[in-house]
Design a protein around this nucleic acid. Structure first.
Lengths: 146, 146
DNA sequence: TTTACTGCAAAAGGTTTGCATGGGT
DNA sequence: ACCCATGCAAACCTTTTGCAGTAAA
């Protein structure tokens, strides 16, 4: 905890950019919960804590925070992008309930093998993968009609 | 070929909706190539062939064509959604080059096993999955700096 | 004849950007 | 002192929607 800030500071100075309180507030808020988030979530959470950081600053900084490796885009839903922080977590993927919106994270080591095979077969340098599985969670399964 | 139209016709009438020339033009255009597409692509392709179908009609019909199982959303890029037609193809996933945009489709039977395990472990009824792998294709690999 | 579907243009909603001010380095 | 980053508001772009006319059924 707090490492995120250190990592970001060195990333920023390495790029010749400037560290600002706004940037640190954004990163602290992102890492203050384990949840996935979207820009509006984040903005409202920060606003609720008395922060005056604007949405424009959030939008302007997200690409930087992604480039630094602290967060990544995970899925696009209801017209806007959703993110998660990835620093300090092992790589994982998601089961998403299309009825109640619940998200279950899982890790599967077989994915690494699949990647290895693909990488060799197609001579492809893999940077990231995102396995997004959708369906009905245990609570919602019984409500399916058909 | 042409089956898509038949499938859509019965889907439409089953729902008590109406079949229209516009809808058939859209579906024919979608299935006229193997490529992934976005709304603007599709609109311009149709326009280039003299069609007068509006973008609004494309937007209004896409949810219906998805529900019918002919197409699905595959990824969100550059601010808009991309689709592919899935009828007549086996289920597959994508390798996408983040430099040149090339898309390689692949099938991996191990994914089914992963799904089976997840389904049991989390008591989750899986409806769809989307494995989106990004990186550098063989042509672009050499241009990586670092 | 009913009412779903269409084209058009306006609106909506998320994201980006121009500009003047403020603040790291 | 330089010039990057910020807040604000306007612009932008994709997608949605209201409306009046058209055409499946």
């Amino acid at each position: 905890m707090g490492d995120e800030i250190e990592l970001f500071r060195s990333f920023i100075s390495q790029k010749g950019l400037r560290n600002t309180p706004e940037r640190e507030v954004i990163i602290r808020e992102i890492f203050s919960t384990h949840d996935h988030f979207d820009v509006d979530d984040l903005y409202l959470r920060m606003l609720g804590k008395g922060s005056k950081v604007s949405k424009a600053s959030i939008y302007r900084n997200i690409p930087l925070i992604m480039e630094c490796g602290l967060i990544k885009e995970v899925w696009h839903e209801n017209g806007h992008m959703h993110y998660e922080h990835i620093y300090g977590h092992g790589h994982h993927c998601h089961l998403r309930c299309i009825q109640c919106g619940k998200v279950i994270e899982f890790v599967d080591r077989h994915l690494r093998q699949i990647e290895k095979r693909l990488s060799k077969e197609y001579d492809f340098k893999i940077i990231d993968h995102n396995l997004d599985i959708t369906g009905y969670c245990s609570d919602c399964k019984n409500g399916i009609n058909v």
